[in-house]
Design a protein around this nucleic acid. Structure first.
Length: 812
DNA sequence: TAAGGCGTCGGGCTT
DNA sequence: CGACGCCTTA
């Protein structure tokens, strides 16, 4: 599945290493080309070891070489090494690269995989010990929600006030922290559905057990429970795993930490060889349960631990590294590293201010075209945004320019509707008791089985404590159902009977085709004339194809629920467009970083919810963004951005101010003043812009020592009691971009506060009334048509009717 | 059962 | 503003 062009890491040491592995007594040639720290990380095999691997320092290479080293030196057999990754992609890559290093010996690394995949393997072996059958099904988020809905309904909880989705998040959060229903802090449980959160969690768990199912969180939790309650089982694995390796340790959550600690703290000190590789400066998943603390506490948790720092960067040029290093140095909760390179300084990090987000997109597009004209490949460029809402504008622009691009990180293959439907059919064939699967497809394609019919099925199934399919089988023999649905169900059951019989004698690919065809599922999409339909049919074909690569249907279903990803079908050179989160681990020659504005980045919500910690995580995200660049990093900010449909004035991100002057250059935005035909010769407009965007550069000129004047401090100087830019327009709390609040908490480094009005300020209650003539910075002159608090609906002379905040218009 | 209206809400997204 | 989910109506 193809490492795309941006993952060029595998070195040329493969062949040599293979020789080394074969000829046991030659010097370990796989160490060739490693720097001293990397060697140390590879060769320190005994005892706990933390490898702090900065961005671009050869982390994966160290990890794979370390495994090769352990194998080739005969310290352990492949089956005695536990190697855990966070994502399937990482697991796959590691497997591949170890394969290159040591040859087929890597085939026998049965314990290389994600936390979840390894947990599943363990649980299948010992399922009875935790109250499951070895054939338990793994529920994904979709199944989870539907099950949760059932629980909420059973409890009579108002699903509008307390959405299943929210409960799912809550429970996920608890599971991330390894909390069983009984362990949920009372206050947290009480916060949902008038105090019933904890109870609902318990009920949900019960339902899972009844269904012989586990969700993702359970895979870890039940394994932990297995280890805790069955000391002999635990001891067996502690004994088996002589060497343990963990990738991306900074991303582990509490449950994963406990899981590891149980395995790594066996009786036999010779087996406490846990090697964790990670980078505290790249911990960006706190919001989904990752605990930076795990890595910060490593030496404390594992006494006698050694720490190796990889600080030599092989990716980026000097200025880029300087900029990233200075930025991240502002964080306090970190172990401390400084990336260095022997490469040249290269280009400075370029910062460009744009009038608004449209112009920003245009500037990025122009730069891409300019680079392309100079012979740079589109495949070596990426646009990294903070939130996916930013993508739209970028896409629009690229489409307009005819620049091919691809979006990284859409919905995954197995999350797509058609794949999930097809799989539900197969699940029903394999395990007729799979109620969630049955429910999903009972009326897909539409066969006239509505709510009413399903209710009857449910009622009977619950009363008799049997699966839905069995209940259906019984009910078609009675008079309880109306004749029409009764026949439909009877036919469907007959279908499933036939398919189950066919399953025994057919290859699974054929079976899938048969089922999808006879059920009318493929026909449904063939008839569908919407734009996506043909893509969906392709996906189904792809599903059937990959199905053939598995020994049997069962192992395929397992694979899909844990692993499957979209086939990498793109060819040709394209600009990559993705979020900063999705960019971790990737690298590009040129990286475009738009949207560096207070409120957007650092994101106000992160600040509001997590204060200082939130700010530091945002800063790590900025650090990740810059360090993706090999040769060119270009940062952009806009002075106006539309948020939830309304134009807001914005100020440059504090992160821009935190970059060292020596490593950046501030570029002018040539087109800034000619936007939309207004302002070319309009002193008003121009001075506004000067002070908003250009003021930054101006400060640098007149007072170099105060270069680091943070935009957010200016925001503070502005005060934040007034207006605000929130949806409600009342300035009450929650306003997206009221920059002062998180900022006040993050104020650790003082600095000169430059007074100066940056943007229009609200004047309290709206000073405008219907009919007033006004001037807007972006849309030009117009008359007020409607006043709603500080929201104005204005008929602009040229731009038509728009809704804007009164703080952005001036009376004329 | 299927389409359209209405209200809500707006962060990142793996397993 | 625009996406999504739920509810109403044909």
């Amino acid at each position: 599945m193809a490492a795309p062009a941006y993952a060029p890491k595998a070195g040329g040491i493969a062949a040599r290493a293979r020789q080394g592995a074969m000829a046991a007594h030659t010097p370990p040639s796989w160490l060739d080309g490693l720097n001293p720290e990397q060697c140390l990380a590879v060769e320190t095999t005994e005892g706990p070891l933390l490898v702090l691997a900065g961005a671009g320092t050869g982390k994966t290479r160290v990890l794979t070489t370390r495994i090769a080293h352990i194998l080739a030196s005969g310290l352990a057999m492949p089956s005695q090494i536990l190697a855990v990754t966070f994502t399937n992609k990482a697991a796959r890559e590691m497997k591949e690269r170890i394969g290159h290093l040591v040859g087929p010996a890597a085939e026998g690394m049965p314990w290389l995989g994600t936390f979840h995949a390894i947990s599943t393997k363990l649980l299948r072996r010992h399922a009875e010990l935790v109250g499951l059958k070895p054939t338990f099904t793994i529920l994904d988020t979709d199944d989870q929600i539907r099950l949760m809905k059932q629980v909420l309904q059973a409890e009579g909880v108002d699903e509008k006030r307390w959405p299943a989705r929210q409960l799912a998040n809550l429970i996920d959060g608890w599971k991330n922290r390894a909390l069983s229903p009984a362990q949920v802090p009372a206050g947290e449980g009480a916060a949902f559905a008038n105090g019933r959160g904890g109870k609902l969690y318990a009920m949900y768990q019960e339902r899972l057990k009844t269904l012989n199912a586990a969700d993702f969180g359970d895979l870890l939790l039940e394994t932990i429970r297995l280890f805790r309650e069955q000391p002999d089982v635990l001891a067996m694995y502690q004994q088996r795993f002589r060497y343990m390796l963990v990738d991306e340790y900074q991303d582990t959550n509490v449950a994963q930490y406990l899981w590891l600690r149980l395995l790594a703290q066996g009786r036999d000190p010779a087996h406490r060889n846990l090697c964790c590789v990670g980078d505290d400066d790249q911990s960006i998943y706190g919001w989904r349960g990752a605990e930076v603390d795990n890595i910060l506490r490593f030496e404390h948790d594992f006494p006698g631990a050694q720490v190796v720092r990889l600080e030599r960067n092989y990716r980026s040029t000097g200025h880029i590294l300087t900029a990233a290093s200075e930025l991240i140095a502002r964080n306090e909760g970190r172990l401390g590293k400084r990336l260095r390179t022997e490469d040249e300084d290269g280009e400075k990090v370029a910062i460009t201010g744009a009038w608004d987000s449209e112009e920003e997109a245009r500037l990025v597009g122009e730069e891409i075209e300019a680079l392309q004209a100079k012979g740079h490949s589109l495949g070596d460029m990426a646009i990294l945004v903070r939130i996916s809402a930013q993508m739209r504008e970028m896409e629009d622009r690229l489409v307009q320019l005819g620049v091919p691009y691809r979006v990284i990180g859409g919905p995954r293959f197995y999350e797509r509707m058609e794949i999930r439907d097809a799989m539900a059919y197969l699940r029903c064939v394999v395990s007729p008791a799979d109620d969630l699967a049955f429910e999903r497809i009972v009326n897909t394609p539409k066969r006239g089985l509505g709510d009413a019919t399903l209710q009857v099925l449910h009622a009977h199934a619950r009363a008799a404590r049997i699966p839905l399919m069995e209940a259906a089988r019984y009910l078609v023999e009675t008079e309880e159902l109306k004749p029409k649905p009764r026949k439909t169900i009877r036919d469907l059951l007959a279908d499933f009977g036939r398919w189950s019989a066919a399953a025994a004698r057919m290859r699974q690919g054929e079976l899938a085709e048969l089922v999808l065809e006879e059920s009318g599922y493929t026909e449904m999409w063939r008839r569908d004339r919407s734009a996506e339909a043909s893509g969906r049919l392709d996906n189904l074909k792809e599903l059937v194809r990959s199905l053939e690569e598995f020994p049997d249907l069962q192992s395929f279903l397992e694979h899909v629920s844990l692993v499957m990803e979209a086939a990498d079908d793109d060819t040709g050179e394209r600009v990559s467009l993705m979020t900063l989160h999705a960019a971790k681990g990737l690298e590009f020659d040129t990286v475009f970083l738009p949207g560096w504005e207070e409120g957007l980045f650092p994101n106000q919500r992160a600040l509001d919810e997590s204060g200082r910690a939130g700010l530091e995580e945002e800063r790590r995200l900025a650090h990740v963004g810059i360090t993706r660049a090999r040769k060119r990093a270009r940062i952009y900010f806009a002075s106006n951005r539309r948020i939830h449909g309304l134009w807001n004035a914005t100020i440059p991100s504090r992160f821009i101010d935190e970059l060292p002057e020596s490593a950046v250059e501030v570029l002018d935005a040539p087109a800034s003043y000619s936007y939309g035909g207004y302002g070319q010769n309009n002193g008003y407009d121009q001075s506004r812009f000067d002070r908003a965007a250009g003021g930054y550069a101006g400060a640098a000129e007149t007072a170099p020592s105060s270069y680091a004047t943070p935009g957010w401090q200016r925001a503070q100087a502005r005060g934040f009691g007034q207006g605000g830019f929130g949806r409600d327009g009342h300035g009450a709390g929650g306003s997206q971009f009221a920059a002062g609040r998180g900022g006040a908490r993050g104020r650790s480094k003082g600095g000169p506060v430059i007074e100066g009005e940056l943007v229009a300020r609200s004047t309290g209650a709206s000073a405008f009334s219907v009919g007033d003539r006004i001037f807007h910075q972006k849309f030009g002159p117009g008359s007020v048509a409607l006043v709603d608090g500080n929201k104005l609906t204005v008929d602009f002379d040229k731009a038509g009717r728009k809704t804007v905040l009164d703080s952005f218009v001036e009376a004329t």
